[in-house]
Structures are given as structure tokens and as C-alpha cells.
Amino acid sequence: MPSSPAPCITASALSLTFATNDGPVHALKDVNLDISKGEFVSFIGPSGCGKTTFLRVIADLERATGGTIVVNGMTPHQAREKRAYGYVFQAPALLPWRTIEKNVALPLEIMGVGAAERTERIARTLALVNLKGFEKKYPWQLSGGMQQRASIARALSFDADLLLMDEPFGALDEIVRDHLNEQLLQLWARTQKTICFVTHSIPEAVYLSTRIVVMSPRPGRVIDVIESDLPRERPLDIRETPEFLRIAHRVREGLRAGHSYDD
């Protein structure tokens, strides 16, 4: 467990404004946030609150228009060039002409990892997400949950210590989602990675995170940051305990306070 929290991501006065035909849209406004190494941080809020945009700014898929952000001591652009993070999208985004193992190999091929090491890493990461035995299958031969697990394996394969996940389980049914949440926690415990996790599910955010960032839309901003005092070891039925419900309640209060009812 990280006793001396080294900073992984530092955002100060971060803003992002999209120019659209209907005038400027403030996707992010004055966001200040520090994320330490080894943390599991969830971003929660209604759609349009900028949680995905914030993740994309970390990943250098969007450029901030104001403020500063530091990722692993670098600009997001440098961090991306150094392959500092793995990104898991809302959909698996697996390439249908590649088998599961070839999909996991894709980032390794691009980064120039040798064939022998590729084989070893594919085996290791597929084992990590419990997909052993499906190496030769094509993505469209697997269920949605398995596809998303394969995409997580792909994000893990090149061993970046930051994992950015953008509503990865949003399209899955609740039973599969519970199962994957449990597995994700085990994976986090084993790999000691820093995870930024975007979700719109309160139980998911509370169950997974060490810290929950509550955001609100128009303009996208942080309205509450909740430290979770739940133990790191979390069986699924922790969701019935009073501590869990207390944190969930606070998240809900934050979401309610931030929601503008005038529209």
C-alpha cells in the first residue's frame, strides 16, 4: 500500500472550452485535483459533466485550453509519447480481423516489443483477466463481457502503471458488471496500478474506489471529493454495509446539489 503518496496526476485550474456553432461550451472549468500513485479514483456525474473529457485530457486525446496538468511529471503529450497509460474505452474497440491474442499484441507490435516477450506478455495479461483458452478466438465469437476483458488485457499488456477507464462496463448487464468489478479490484490489488475510472453508477463508484470525484455539468466542474474508508479487501456484499451506504448517500447528495434543475 502506498504510504508515501507520490503524485501521478496533478491538475490545477484546468479548463477546456469547445468552440461550437452555438457558442463556447465549458466542458471543464477550474478543475483542481491531485491523484497519487496506486489510487483508484472514480469520476461520477451526469452526462455532460466533463468526466470523460477530463480522462481524455489526461490521455492527450483532448488539449486543455486553460490551467495546467501534469501526468507522471510530464505534459500529457510527453506522457502519451512515452506510453505512460493504458486506455479502456466505453466499447471494447477490438479489431475484428485479429484474434484475441493478436488484439492484445497490437500495442506491443506498435511499441516494437520482440516476439518472444510478446508471447509471454499476452499469456500473462490474458491470464490476469481470466481469458486463458480464448487466444485464438475472434472478438465477435466472444460475449460482450469477455470482449471488454480482452480490451482491458490489451491496455495492461504494455505495463503502463496508469490505467484510464472510460465507463468500461457501461454497456454490460448488472450481473456481468458485478463480476467484472470484483475481478477489476483483484487485478488492481495484484498490479498496484493507478486507476482513473469514469462511471455513472453510484454503487460501482463506491465499490471500486479509494476516492470518488463527484462532478456536475454546465460548466463541468468538481463539486465533491470523497475519501472512502472502506477496507481494500471488498467482497461484493460489502455493498449492504452501513459504511458503504453512507458513502453512497454522500455521493448522491453531491450529485443532487450539483444538478441544475432549471433546465
Binding site: 490521455a59 492527450d60 486525446l61 502519451r80 509519447e81 512515452k82 506510453r83 497509460y85 493504458g86 486506455y87 474505452f89 466505453q90 466499447a91 474497440a93 479489431l95 480481423w97 497490437l106 500495442p107 507490435e109 506498435i110 511499441m111
Partner: peptide, 26 residues
Amino acid sequence: SGAMERDLMRTYASNHWQALFKLRLP
């Protein structure tokens, strides 16, 4: 090819030709 797949290649810091041969041409 989809926007998400192209973002994926971007997160790997792939160059134009890698993205072309591994994603966009297939």
C-alpha cells in the same frame, strides 16, 4: 475505421504508417 479505434492508436503513440497498416487499411 471508427473514431474510437483511431483514438486507441493515438493512445499507443503510433505513427501514421502504423495506424494505416494495422487499422485503417484492413
